[in-house]
């Protein structure tokens, strides 16, 4: 039986349809979760996709975190359910306190839309458990505020606990320690700036997103 994957939709999300396609491709059974409903509908995994949310006023994710669906996502995550936030979804998860750190404006104030080379730093997370440690994946980034930052103590903790999931081979945005993705203590919540759903076919230039998406479905 295929796993049911909920893809959250905020006002301004724009990667949810790509994610539905990508999830079908890897054998999942995706459905949309509306931001105004305080439930995750009993799904097996949740994805907070990219785009925008509530205009990203104040800060990206600052208003989205108060959406009814986010309390259900937090409850699901606390119970060990797999949750992945991509791009704006990563920003939402940090604002919601489900992941440490914050995403600042890119160094150099450049919006970056380009393929990025990412190294898989750990396979001990819901997004990388079916990937190969040390593998370099080509997956696009598309953001203005993807410059990951956290205090020195948090960074030391992330390193010690092997919670830096993905690093950029070449830093595109000023992120501390080349961080592209991190996970929570339970390793069931992962946030990353790159878009694995856009690397699912040779027609799109890369299939390197597939091992990540398959990881989410491998229990």
């Amino acid at each position: 039986m295929s796993l049911r994957v909920g893809v959250v939709v905020f006002p301004g999300s724009n990667c949810e349809q790509d994610m539905l396609e990508a999830m079908r491709l890897v054998g999942g059974e995706p459905e949309l979760l509306w931001h105004g409903d305080a439930t995750v509908n009993g799904v097996d995994a949740v994805i907070v996709p990219g785009g925008f949310a509530h205009g990203d006023y104040l800060r990206p994710g600052a208003i989205a975190r108060f959406s009814p669906v986010m309390s259900a996502v937090a409850e699901f995550a606390a119970a060990g359910g797999p949750v992945v936030g991509i791009c704006n979804g990563f920003q939402v998860l940090t604002e919601a306190g489900l992941l440490p750190g914050a995403l600042q404006k890119n160094a150099g104030l450049k919006f970056v839309c380009a393929p990025a080379q990412l190294r898989v730093e750990t396979t001990n997370s819901v997004l990388t458990r079916a990937a190969d440690k040390g593998a370099v994946l080509s997956i696009p980034i598309n953001h203005f505020e993807g410059n990951y930052t956290c205090d020195a103590e948090t960074l030391a903790q992330l390193r010690d606990e092997d919670r830096i999931v993905l690093r950029y081979v070449v830093n595109p945005n000023g992120s501390v320690d080349n961080i592209a993705g991190v996970c929570n203590e339970g390793r069931n919540v992962v946030g990353l700036m790159p878009h694995p759903e856009r690397s699912t076919s040779e027609l799109l230039g890369s299939t390197d997103g597939l091992p990540l998406l398959r990881s989410l479905l491998s229990v």
């Binding site: 600042q104 150099g108 104030l109 930052t149």
Partner: peptide, 9 residues
């Protein structure tokens, strides 16, 4: 101590 890309630009 937090970098300010807008300020430096």
């Amino acid at each position: 101590g937090i970098a300010d890309p807008q300020g430096s630009t």
